[in-house]
């Protein structure tokens, strides 16, 4: 079984904050990390590999420094990595990103399962997985929390919805987007770290993927950002201090006045 895992390098939102004076993102000290949901996808792939004969290839689209994210994945036990990097990819919306990633999976040829994180924490769209599956004409399941390989040609999965849990059977090749419950990511091992350090990671550009430059990046995108602004701050903040009994009275009164339900 060949598993492709798509990952994205994102700014560590732990450190992302807005400068209160300029109302812009403070960039100093913001490190890049692998999108947390994509680490769950890596873990899900490694779990399948623990139980069956599987090869895992991790891929990402990004600037040359996204190479670090791939090496991080390799150090956790992933077999191979591919970097999709080209100036022509800049400005991609989800459509263009999915087009590019789908072309890479197609080029890899023998992929049985594509795993993605539920969404990336910088964009939060959750669209790239389903769109990729569509371009690859694969069935897919989103918000997957458990994966079971039935035989070589089908998976049984549990997916978490707003209403509960659904259990589905999907034929391979298929695509899954996963959530936290698939398992906490394992840590890099020394052996894999050594291998990751030395690994040669191929870089595929527009030409390698057989894509036309006008179909990727900004020119291959349908959506366009026309305005970016800081969200309005909450101005109605009330701090309640003093003796407990007074705090209780105050909060109760405030909540009554705000007409919140339940009281």
């Amino acid at each position: 079984m060949h598993i492709a895992v798509c990952i994205k390098q994102v700014p560590d939102t732990k450190n992302v904050r807005i400068d209160p004076d300029t109302h812009t993102l403070v960039r100093q000290g913001v490190e890049s990390i692998i999108n947390p949901f994509d680490l769950f996808a890596v873990e899900a792939a490694l779990k399948i590999k623990d139980e069956t004969q599987a090869t895992i290839t991790v891929l990402t689209m990004g600037p040359p420094q996204a190479d670090e994210a791939l090496r991080d994945a390799l150090s956790r036990g992933v077999d191979d990595a591919v970097l999709l990097s080209d100036r022509a990819f800049a400005g991609s919306d989800t459509w263009a990103t999915s087009t590019t990633l789908a072309a890479a999976v197609r080029k890899m040829g023998d992929v049985d399962v594509v795993l993605c994180g539920k969404q990336a924490v910088d964009g939060d769209t959750a669209q790239v997985g389903p769109e990729m599956a569509t371009f690859l004409d694969m069935p897919y399941a989103t918000f997957v929390k458990k994966i079971e390989v039935l035989d070589g040609s089908a998976l049984k999965i549990s997916r978490q919805t707003d209403e509960g849990v659904e259990i589905w059977k999907l034929p391979t090749p298929c695509l899954l987007t996963v959530i936290k419950e698939v398992g906490e990511p394992r840590l890099p091992s020394l052996r894999h770290k050594m291998r990751a350090k030395k690994a040669t990671i191929p870089v595929w550009g527009v030409a390698d993927l057989g894509l036309a430059p006008e179909n990727v990046g900004l020119s291959g995108s349908f959506t366009q950002v026309v305005r970016v602004f800081s969200p309005p701050r909450r101005t109605d903040r009330v701090l309640i201090q003093g003796p407990i009994e007074e705090q209780v009275e105050q909060l109760f009164r405030h909540l009554k006045e705000s007409k919140v339900p339940g009281l």
Partner: peptide, 23 residues
């Protein structure tokens, strides 16, 4: 932008070849 909408609407957008803004 529910678990249903966020799951299948991207496929609709991809099939009709149009842009989609999430959430």
């Amino acid at each position: 932008a529910t678990s249903m909408g966020r799951s299948f609407i991207p496929r609709v957008a991809a099939l009709v070849k149009t842009g989609l803004t999430a959430d």
